[in-house]
């Protein structure tokens, strides 16, 4: 049942009894768990980069609420997928949470299947997010290898300009552009122009 050995479910709830029960339930289903009694305690914990897992988060807590923590995690660029649990949810509250990227919003008391499904989805989303993030990081590293001139050429290439046009734009020969372009494809490890365009999109390089 375990999605991945290094994936942890991080339980954040101010109610000790609930925390304990959740921990037991998830462990009995084979998850590794860690519990936190408040949002602050969670934020004070150091997570090794590349940590995977999902958060099961109580919405209403004294001090920093679940939704506050969600915003804070976003700010800190910590891509933990969140499953919210709430004792008394309101529609605006759940809409807000979902908009901000929550995976699910479970109202207490909830069924173990519903919780497992939500956690599985969250884990999957977490993995995707992690993969996406890793890819971006790789692309950024490759992009960093480009010279300023090569970056200019890349931007114009993905904008759909021909070598000739680019040469005119940059005030150089078509042959020089051809060399730059070859280097860009090589450094970015792009197999085709389409590949390069996709990479540029992911890197949010203007194509206009």
């Amino acid at each position: 049942m375990n999605d991945r050995p290094d994936a942890e479910v991080l339980i954040i709830d101010d109610d000790a009894s609930m925390r304990k029960a959740l921990e037991r339930l998830l462990q009995s289903m084979g998850y590794r768990t860690r519990t936190f009694s408040s949002a602050q305690e969670f934020l004070n914990t150091d997570f090794p980069p590349g940590s995977v897992g999902c958060i099961v988060l109580d919405v209403k807590m004294p001090g920093m609420s679940g939704t506050d923590l969600q915003e804070e995690l976003k700010k800190r660029d910590l891509p933990f997928p969140i499953v919210f649990i709430t004792g008394h949810g309101t529609i605006p509250m759940s809409v807000q949470a979902m908009k901000h990227g929550a995976v699910d919003f479970l109202e207490k008391p909830f069924d173990d299947h519903a919780l497992v499904q939500a956690i599985s989805r969250a884990m999957e989303k977490g993995r995707q997010a992690m993969a996406f993030k890793r890819e971006i990081r790789e692309l950024e590293e490759r992009y960093r290898l480009l010279t300023p001139r090569e970056r200019e050429v890349l931007a114009l290439v993905v904008a759909g300009m021909l070598n000739k046009q680019i040469a005119a734009e940059l005030g150089t020969s078509e042959k020089t552009i051809k060399v730059h372009r070859g280097r860009v494809m090589e450094k970015m490890q792009a197999g085709s122009l389409a590949d390069l365009v996709r990479m540029a999109e992911k890197l949010n390089i203007s194509t206009s």
Partner: peptide, 16 residues
Amino acid sequence: HEINQPLAAILANAQA
């Protein structure tokens, strides 16, 4: 919240 809290804990415990 106060009612659902123990209820949720009971359910989770029972399922565990």
